[in-house]
Amino acid sequence: MNYTLHQLQIFLEVVKHESVTKAAESMHMTQPALSIQLKNFQNQFDLPLTEVIGRKLHITDFGFSIAELAENVLREAEGIKYRTQAYKGLQSGKLSISSASTGKYVIPFFLSGFIHDHPGIDLKLDVTNKTKVMQSLRSNEIDFAFVSVIPEDTDVEEEPIIENRLYLMSGSPKRDKSAPLIYREEGSATRAAMDQYFGSVKERKRLELTSNEAVKQAVIAGLGQSVLPIIGVRNQLEVGDIHILNVKGLPITTTWRLIWLKNKKLSPIAQALLEHIRETRDQVIEDHFSWYTEFTEK
């Protein structure tokens, strides 16, 4: 079959009016022109769509069944048109981001205004460790990854967001060099930072936990010391549950950033998010992270 959407529209008008003349008037066509299109559409079926009884046009049962399907086709076609318009106008669509665990303290503030301005956009934000984030990025399952360290084995583009500083922290203001060290699991960027700083320290007991929140609670409980990003412990620092230990070689400084595969063609929504972040980054930092920038500059 090789019918056109226009032929479907014509046939539906004929069904509606049960008259070629009235259908032609409704569609602002001449009757001969409409009749030709109706005939071309009819020729694609072995069964009649219409029949003339007593000089009056009637729609056959088969014709009504085709009309029902034609309505569905035109409805879906209209949906395609509006979906395209919606994407161009950023009224709807999907945005997928995978964030390293600690990024949950940062990225929502840079997404909030964008999602508020475009309520039709469905956001999927997956928070996991860096290894899984990079797996999702390499397999092209997401639009962006939110990480603090650029991967060395993957070609990416980046948009820097905000500085990330990691300090040695403890539940006590006094440093105890014999206290256990609390690590994140393998694959975490924070774990890599601790491995880099402490190397293969063997004289201190090591604990390993699988989330930044678990590490933070363990530090508060006095189970040991850990290298943590300051951006995730504001409340604990303010009430004195956690203390920063000033030690040589710290803080470790990186940058939180959005990254995406090099040469990836970003969707209009993804491109619009980048533009939004570039326009609002300084204001978001001032509104939500002024405490952080002031603290790290002390």
Rank of each mutant, 00 (worst) to 15 (best):
Q7T: 11
Q9H: 14
I10H: 15
F11C: 12
E13I: 01
E13S: 15
V14W: 09
T21G: 10
E25T: 12
M27N: 08
T30D: 12
A33D: 02
Q37M: 08
Q37W: 07
T50H: 01
E51F: 07
I53M: 08
G54S: 05
R55K: 14
K56F: 03
F62G: 07
A70Y: 02
A70K: 04
V73S: 09
G79S: 05
R83L: 12
Y87D: 11
Y87F: 11
L90P: 00
L90R: 14
K94G: 04
L95P: 05
S98R: 10
S98G: 08
T102N: 13
G103A: 05
Y105W: 12
Y105D: 15
Y105I: 03
L111V: 05
F114E: 09
I121H: 06
L125M: 15
R138Q: 15
D143N: 14
A145Y: 02
S148L: 03
E158K: 13
N164I: 05
R165E: 10
L166I: 04
L166D: 10
Y167C: 01
S172L: 01
K174P: 01
R175N: 11
D176K: 06
S178H: 09
S178T: 14
I182V: 11
G187P: 02
T190M: 11
M194V: 00
M194Y: 03
F198P: 03
F198A: 07
G199A: 06
V201S: 13
V201P: 03
V201W: 04
E208R: 14
A221H: 05
G222W: 04
L223P: 00
S226E: 12
P229E: 15
N235C: 03
D241L: 10
H243P: 03
I244K: 02
V247H: 07
L250I: 08
P251C: 04
T253S: 13
T255F: 02
K262T: 02
L266E: 12
S267T: 15
P268T: 03
A270R: 02
E275G: 04
H276P: 00
R281W: 08
D287F: 03
E297H: 10
K298V: 04
